[in-house]
Design a protein around this nucleic acid. Structure first.
Lengths: 249, 249
DNA sequence: GATAATTTTGCATGAATTTGCATTTTTATA
DNA sequence: TATAAAAATGCAAATTCATGCAAAATTATC
């Protein structure tokens, strides 16, 4: 058995098990542990695996880890996110805003669906790298370290050139009369551009945002086509919105 | 079960439960409590968890956490990274390429230094959000999920418009005659543009990359001004490069 | 195809790592 | 303060590792 052949076998083994032990490989392949060690060192040297005492691990261990417990009100956001992903159809081009609700959405996209997603959120982009069939396009610009999103004129300029099927937009405030409003001016501006670039707008609204108003206006209710909440679609709180002709999910 | 495997399990457990108890882990994993304690101490030492009497707690309120143990050859990269940050002066504009060496650099930038950093690496951008005085500008584009960097024509177009003081560039191969070379065509192209946009180019070279050549040429040696390695600057391996007039650090 | 050069492999040695246990010290809590 | 659980410490056994070296296998060259 050739060296390369053996090393390919080891790589395959690591891909399937995520780890290998030197002594087991030596037995499996009928060579000395020294040889295995040398193989592992070479593979590790090429960055293909991670050598550890006693064997090796897959390097495909994530460099960054998502910390579920730091998401506020997570259960409700998951309920909401599940409804959102049901709107996704194969081949769609989608713009996603930032926020932890959208982050949950990106976690729940089924593996088999093919999408192109534009986002200016670092966290969402990071999360989407785990999805096998989503093409991610990051909208670059100056990074807001607090919100982990890019902001500024470049973001607006880039967004305005996109043509998307769907805009999945987190909200800070929504009200029957005032429409959708935002805390920050910059974000409100970006969201207006997102809306203009999308055929359909879906507003993500957790119950605590209903009937609240923030400082900066984003858009009137008639500009959005769907509201997704963590409530039952027939909840009385939602009736005024349904009456405006918006589909409630 | 390998030690690292066990520690990964513990980390996973903490992520999902927010806390673990030593005695329970010992039972779950079939090892002594001493071993668990040693694991917890090591993880705690790396800042990944918070060790407490009886077990450990999750530390990070952060949404994403950097996993140091998955970086290959980390000790040497840290040595190298320390030298790199010594080149940073207040007010500089810097372009940083991707790669784990540069990731270590971004970890080690002193808090008091003010910089503007352009990067197309998601991991580096994420890391830099922890720095109080660095303005981060993300170069957007299609995301390469493997390398966690943006690629494509947009990246090139945006890079070519930047004027930076310093370009901190990871390398895949460097050779006295062949200059700097890269594994992938796309990356080699991006690096050429980075170089053209910077007043000074600093090449990051771990010892194992010295005198190796990859498939795609990036630039000749005379185009770079400094080489930073994890070796002693007077190491005989580096003499041929010094003779070409490149400063070795 | 023969021969030389190079690479690969297995083994011996001592060093280093990992682990569990016994003992002592510290901590949490009633 | 008393008590039990947990932690620190030192130690020994088992395993793994790095290194040098010679034999074996592979590759290159004629």
């Amino acid at each position: 058995m050739l060296k390369e052949e053996r090393q390919n076998y080891i790589l395959g083994r690591i891909r399937e098990l995520n780890k290998v032990k030197s002594n087991e490989l030596a037995l499996e392949l009928g060579v000395s542990e020294d040889t295995i060690r040398r193989d592992l060192n070479q593979l590790s040297h090429n960055g293909l695996i991670l050598k550890v005492h006693g064997g090796a691990l897959s390097t495909h261990q994530k460099l960054y880890h998502y910390n579920e417990s730091s998401v506020f009100n997570r259960e409700n956001k998951v309920i909401l996110a599940k409804k959102v992903v049901s709107l996704f159809k194969d081949g769609m081009t989608i713009i996603m805003s930032g926020g932890t609700t959208n982050l949950e959405v990106s976690l729940l996209i089924p593996d088999n669906i093919k999408l192109t997603i534009y986002t200016y959120s670092l966290s969402i982009a990071m999360q989407l790298t785990e999805h096998p069939n989503v093409d991610v396009i990051i909208i670059g610009g100056k990074l807001d370290k607090q919100a982990l999103v890019t902001v500024g004129v470049n973001v607006v300029k880039l967004l305005s050139k996109i043509k998307a099927d769907l805009c999945i937009m987190g909200t800070s405030g929504i009200d029957v009369d005032e429409g959708i409003t935002e805390v920050g001016y910059e974000v409100s501006f970006v969201k207006r551009v997102m809306i203009a670039s999308s055929r359909q707008v879906v507003a993500l609204v957790t119950a605590d945002k209903l009937n609240t108003t923030q400082r900066y206006p984003v858009c009137d209710l008639f500009e959005i086509s769907k509201i997704v909440t963590d409530l039952d679609p027939n909840d009385p709180l939602l009736i005024p919105y349904a009456k405006k002709g918006i589909e409630i999910i």
